[in-house]
Design a protein around this nucleic acid. Structure first.
Lengths: 231, 231
DNA sequence: ATATAAGGTGTCGAAATTACACCATTAAAT
DNA sequence: ATTTAATGGTGTAATTTCGACACCTTATAT
């Protein structure tokens, strides 16, 4: 059976690459589509921008409708504008990313019928995605990999209180390489934006680690003058 | 006299921030608009994307039509999508930048009637621009300032053969600070992607400097593994 | 008490970064 | 011919950062 689809001209859409970190693994949010085209395929959460909302607002709304997640700090990273990227017509999409702590998060679940389900999937083993979403994901992953080195995005993926080992394993997951424990700690602590708490990890069956907090205010002070690569 | 303007829904446009370097000064290309809205205002070169062209293609075409420049290496840097950014309707614009050698370039000149003129203007003394173009410019300037530190974009602004002093003064213009001559040279040369030529500057009334060339092939070899900020 | 699993810590050599000042060369002016 | 003006071109030493590397400590479970 062939399905006749409407076509459209000049539509903007938003697609979201939402990273989460859980059990030492980096994951992203996928949805199962419930609409043609690419019905039943896996895809990034994404939909069409309304006339009367900014693209930033649209990104928040769309993510909420498709996954139930709200109040993430979403950031635009690239716009995809190939003519044939959408089979039904001309759709230019602005891609956003966000980072989020998975732990303690209520289950993700679509609020609209455009998606059948939403779930976390490890980045290392992604299936083929609808549209050009695999390309969008790759572009986004490269972006955050690079940004990890000069922006405090790691802390958005961790619980508010975290151990240095957790922080290190996040860096290792994103950069995909092993780091030296002593050097990593020395360097992170030397920045001065980690606040040591009077509290320890609980519920582990081995020596509990100290907990730390990211001190956003100190970070901002330290890095207000940040352009420094040449001299 | 009040002018009635047509309005439109869902239009994509492109705006271009084109940097050039001349006489030790960083400049950008502006046009004088010949159409409402903002007729007679200064603006970034920009126009509407057609249905059957990718945004990258559109960026090239539009820049050509408004300034006569072709074959620049243009790169998207941000998409601006506030609802009210265009007085006639919903226009989302994708902003691109490019860098170009001004010297020896034929005069810039619009090919369409949408612009009255096109000209270079120093970045340090920009007038108020049409639409949200001042914001677009600022965003773009910050981008290239940062990219100067990890991408070989400086060489696109200089003539093919350049002196180390020219290179340094470009860095100083973009970063807006003085650099140490000896350290700058030591560092630049240590990378190994500058090729010293058997040729000297001509036509100067003082000791002529050696000329150098950027060796793109060596650069690519050196920086294929580049992620390195944490260990 | 013992085993297990991760927490937590310091040093040394190499490399990179920074600060800093003077002589050399060329063309133009006298 | 000499001087002047302007920029070209160079080295070193102190300091800081980076990277490699291994062992004892502590909490819990058995």
């Amino acid at each position: 059976m062939e399905v006749k689809l409407p076509t459209f001209d000049s539509v903007f859409s938003i697609d979201c690459v939402i990273f989460g970190f859980e059990a030492g693994e980096l994951k992203i949010l996928l949805i199962e589509r419930n609409e043609e085209p690419f019905k039943d395929w896996l895809a990034l959460p994404g939909y069409i921008v309304e006339q009367d909302e900014s693209i930033d607002d649209a990104a928040e709304r769309i993510l909420y409708e498709l996954t139930g997640l709200r109040d993430l700090h979403m950031q635009q990273f690239h716009t995809f504008g190939e003519v044939k990227r959408h089979p039904q017509g001309r759709v230019i999409t602005v891609a956003y990313y966000a980072l989020i702590r998975i732990n303690g998060q209520k289950e993700v679940k679509p609020v609209t019928h455009y998606a059948k389900s939403a779930f976390w999937h490890p980045v290392n083993d992604l299936p083929k995605l609808a549209f050009d979403h695999s390309e969008i994901f790759n572009t986004g992953f490269n972006k955050i990999r690079r940004r990890l080195n000069y922006q405090p995005i790691a802390f958005e993926l961790l619980p508010e209180k975290f151990t240095l080992t957790q922080l290190q394993s996040l860096y290792e997951a994103v950069l995909n390489k092993k780091l030296d424990k002593r050097n990593f700690r020395k360097k992170m602590l030397s920045y001065g934006f980690l606040k040591e708490l009077d509290e320890k990890q609980k519920g582990v069956s081995y020596r509990a680690a100290k907990l730390y907090k990211f001190d956003r205010r100190k970070y901002a002070k330290i890095f207000q003058n940040e352009l420094n690569l040449v001299q």
